Amino acid sequence: SQVHIGNTTFTFDNPEKAQKYAEKYAKKKGLTVQKNGDVWTVE
Results as ranks from 00 to 15, higher is better:
Pro15Cys: 12
Trp40Pro: 01
Lys35Arg: 14
Lys35Val: 06
Lys27Trp: 07
Asn7Arg: 11
Asp13Pro: 12
Ala26Trp: 03
Asp38Ser: 09
Lys17Phe: 09
Trp40Met: 02
Ala26Ile: 03
His4Pro: 02
Val42Pro: 00
Phe10Cys: 15
Glu43Lys: 11
Lys20Cys: 13
Val42Gln: 01
Lys35Pro: 01
Asp13Ala: 10
Gln34Ile: 14
Thr11Tyr: 15
Lys27Arg: 10
Ala26Cys: 06
Lys29Trp: 15
Asp38His: 06
Asp38Pro: 07
Ala26His: 02
Tyr21Arg: 00
Glu16Tyr: 11
Thr11Gln: 12
Asp13Lys: 08
Glu23Leu: 12
Thr41Pro: 00
Leu31Thr: 04
Gln34Thr: 14
Val33Glu: 02
Tyr25Gly: 01
Ile5Tyr: 03
Thr41Gly: 01
Phe12Val: 02
Gln34Val: 14
Gly30Gln: 05
Glu43Arg: 07
Asn36Cys: 13
Val39Leu: 06
Thr9Val: 15
Asn36Gln: 13
Asn7Phe: 10
Thr41Asn: 06
Val39Tyr: 07
Leu31Asp: 00
Val33Trp: 06
Gln34Pro: 00
Lys27Val: 05
Lys27His: 09
Phe10Asn: 03
Trp40Asp: 00
Phe12Ala: 02
Thr9Asn: 08
Ser1Tyr: 15
Asn14Trp: 04
Val3Phe: 03
Ser1Asn: 12
Gly30Asn: 06
Gln19Val: 04
Gln34Glu: 08
Val33Arg: 02
Gln34Lys: 13
Gln2Val: 14
Ala26Gln: 03
Ala18Asn: 02
Val39Pro: 00
Lys20Asp: 12
Asn36Ser: 13
Lys20Pro: 00
Pro15Thr: 06
Tyr25Asp: 03
Ala22Phe: 06
Trp40Asn: 02
Lys17Met: 14
Gly37Arg: 03
Thr32Asn: 09
Asp13Trp: 13
Trp40Gln: 01
Val3Tyr: 00
Gln34Ser: 13
Gly6Ile: 05
Gly30Cys: 10
Thr32Glu: 06
Gln19Tyr: 11
Ala26Phe: 04
Thr8Gln: 14
Lys35Tyr: 10
Tyr21Thr: 04
Asn7Trp: 12
Val42Cys: 03
Phe12Ser: 03
Lys24Ala: 14
Asn36Glu: 11
Phe10Gly: 04
Glu23Asp: 07
Gln19Trp: 08
Lys24Ser: 13
Thr8Gly: 06
Val3Ser: 02
Lys29Gly: 06
Thr8Ala: 11
Gly30Ala: 04
Lys35Cys: 13
Tyr25Arg: 02
Gln2Trp: 12
Thr41Arg: 06
Thr41Ile: 14
Ala18Met: 00
Phe10Glu: 04
Thr9Pro: 01
Asp38Met: 08
Gly30Met: 02
Val33Ser: 02
Thr8His: 15
Gly6Gln: 07
Val33Lys: 01
Gln2Ala: 08
Gln34Leu: 11
Thr9Arg: 11
Thr8Met: 15
Pro15Lys: 05
Val33Ala: 10
Lys20Met: 12
Phe12Asn: 02
Gly30Phe: 04
Pro15Phe: 07
Asn7Ala: 08
Glu16Trp: 09
Lys29His: 15
Gln19Thr: 03
Lys35Asn: 06
Glu23Gln: 06
Lys24Cys: 15
Glu23Met: 07
Pro15Ile: 06
Lys35Leu: 12
Lys35Met: 07
Gly37Val: 03
Asn36Asp: 11
Ile5Met: 03
Leu31Tyr: 12
Lys35Gln: 08
Lys28Tyr: 10
Ala18Ser: 00
His4Gly: 01
Asn36Ile: 15
Thr9Ala: 06
Thr32Asp: 05
Ser1Lys: 09
Gly37Glu: 06
Asn36Gly: 03
Ala26Lys: 02
Lys29Ile: 08
Lys27Phe: 07
Gln19Asn: 04
Lys29Arg: 13
Thr9Ile: 15
Ile5Asp: 01
Thr9Tyr: 15
Thr8Trp: 15
Thr9Ser: 08
Thr32Phe: 06
Trp40Ser: 01
Thr8Tyr: 15
Lys29Leu: 14
Phe12Asp: 05
Ser1His: 14
Lys28Ile: 13
Glu16Ser: 10
Val39Ala: 08
Thr32Val: 11
Glu16Arg: 08
Gln2Asp: 05
Asp13Val: 06
Tyr25Ile: 13
Gln19Lys: 11
Lys17Ala: 15
Thr41Phe: 14
Gly30Pro: 01
Ala18Pro: 00
Gly37Met: 02
Asn14Arg: 04
His4Ser: 09
Leu31Val: 07
Lys17His: 12
Thr9Glu: 07
Thr9Lys: 12
Gly37Ser: 01
Thr8Glu: 12
Lys29Gln: 09
Ala26Leu: 07
Lys28Met: 13
Asn14Leu: 07
Glu43Phe: 13
Tyr21Ile: 06
Gly6Glu: 09
Ala22Glu: 02
Thr41Gln: 06
Leu31Trp: 13
Leu31Glu: 01
Val42Leu: 07
Trp40Leu: 06
Ala22Ile: 09
Thr32Arg: 09
Thr11Glu: 10
Ile5Pro: 02
Lys17Cys: 15
Asn36Thr: 11
Gln2Pro: 03
Ala22Met: 04
Lys17Asn: 12
Thr32Gln: 09
Gly6Arg: 10
Val39Thr: 12
His4Glu: 04
Asn14Ile: 06
Asp38Lys: 07
Asn14Met: 06
Phe12Ile: 03
Leu31Ala: 05
Glu16Ile: 11
Tyr25Lys: 02
Ser1Cys: 15
Lys24Met: 14
Pro15Trp: 07
Val33Thr: 03
His4Val: 14
Tyr21Gly: 01
His4Ile: 15
Gly6Trp: 11
Thr9Gln: 07
Gly6Val: 06
Val42Ile: 11
Val33Gly: 00
Asn36Lys: 11
Ala18Ile: 01
Thr11Val: 13
Leu31Cys: 12
Trp40Glu: 02
Thr9Asp: 06
Gly6Thr: 05
Leu31His: 06
Thr32Ser: 09
Gly30Val: 00
Asn7Gly: 10
Thr41His: 10
Gly6Asn: 09
Val39Glu: 10
Gly30Arg: 04
Asn36Val: 14
Ile5Glu: 00
Lys17Leu: 14
Thr11Pro: 05
Glu43Leu: 13
Phe10Ser: 05
Asn7Asp: 09
Lys28Phe: 10
Gly6Ser: 07
Glu43Cys: 12
Gln34Met: 12
Glu43Val: 14
